[in-house]
Design a protein around this nucleic acid. Structure first.
Lengths: 209, 209
DNA sequence: CCATTCAGTAAACATCCGTTCTCCGACGCG
DNA sequence: CGCGTCGGAGAACGGATGTTTACTGAATGG
């Protein structure tokens, strides 16, 4: 049996993960294009040259972080899209899930918000592609709802993209409030998000005219 | 008479503007926190030390760029809010104005989209403050429209913030398409924006329930 | 017209950067 | 056990960075 297999690979993955974590930590106060390779390795406690065993350069590290960050978002979207008969209740649940996610994964959502329009082309493209996949997923889920009867695929997608954009913006705004420790602003933002979703929901119900 | 006054100050302003322009040009492919002071002065053709005659550091340059960029946006908002009886026509006009603005001031809107969630705190705060002022302006204009009868100030502001966010996101998306020279994507994005505005407009009309 | 102000210059500084190279030592496998 | 593999260490490099210093020369204003 190969019961000892992978001690080596496990250590490598551990270092790789440490590099990703360090990058994410540095991203809290800088943007990706200004992060130094040495800065990352210093935080992890390895030699600068060790970086090249895992990534070609910093942009490459960034692309890996996109997958990690938006991977954890998949769970959020699924929780939001969970069956829920009442529209109002679904909105409350959505905002609650987003709030919880922001509290649990602040670094990930900050990274996405920051680099979505950031200075590294490869990372921008990776984020755009991943968010487009999310929009498709949301559109598919919206189609199942009775409110969407008679909607074209195109219109469902434009609505889904609106929801995804709104989600990212809301999460980012909530995070900024959390950074300042401003819980009052956080509650205000959550209430604003609920009302905006309510307005979109209203527009949705009267689209067939 | 002081008819010769200002030759000196005029030259200084000229250099200052050149520094701002150079910064904006560099911002096309980097983010602010990774721009070097020497890089900027090199592009202008002045000595590095000359930079300190105009700005304390790069973040300070960034804050100045915020004022310049969002100053030019004021005209856009005013053009959008121009009286227009028909809602559908107002939407068309809005998107057309945004398209025109993106074509005319690509660097400015890229800067705002990039640094709104970017790595420099002072710049983020400056952008947030300026966008909040825009939202107030939009809310005030919305109140004048008959559709807003019975709306609370709070609700008007949440709607206005939604419009401002949507404007920034649309402009940024249009710019990305323009960068790729993809005119088909640009037209698709414009149509999507129109439909999203239509949906919001619908929700607005049925808010009083 | 002459003393003063001041935007911009030129050089020097300590520091940090990304990258390459050689080497080591622990793990993997037969 | 013994040999090949390979993640990581360590040192060295050329170059770029932000900042300070003393300076120059033209516009300024009494």
């Amino acid at each position: 049996m190969s019961h000892t297999t992978g001690v080596r690979q496990a250590q490598k993955q551990k270092t790789r993960q440490a590099l990703l974590d360090a990058g994410l930590r540095l991203l809290a106060e800088q943007s990706l294009s200004s992060i130094g390779l040495r800065e990352v390795t210093r935080l992890v406690g390895v030699a600068p040259a060790a970086f090249y065993r895992h990534f070609r350069d910093i942009p490459d590290l960034g692309v890996a972080l996109v997958e990690e960050s938006l991977g954890s978002l998949h769970g959020v979207v699924r929780a939001i899209l969970a069956e829920q008969p009442d529209a109002e209740e679904r909105i409350d649940r959505t905002v609650a899930v987003v709030e919880h996610f922001v509290r649990e994964n602040p670094a990930h959502i900050r990274f996405i918000a920051r680099e979505r329009h950031g200075g590294v082309r490869a990372v921008r493209r990776a984020i755009a592609a991943e968010l487009a996949r999310f929009a498709d997923e949301v559109a598919a889920a919206l189609r199942e709802q009775p409110v969407s009867d008679g909607w074209s695929d195109d219109d469902l997608l434009m609505l889904a993209e609106m929801y995804v954009d709104h989600l990212v913006m809301t999460a980012s705004a909530l995070l900024d409030a959390a950074d300042d420790g401003d819980t009052a602003a956080r509650d205000r933002l959550a209430e604003r998000a609920r009302r905006q979703l309510r307005l979109i929901s209203l527009g949705r119900r009267h689209w067939k005219d």
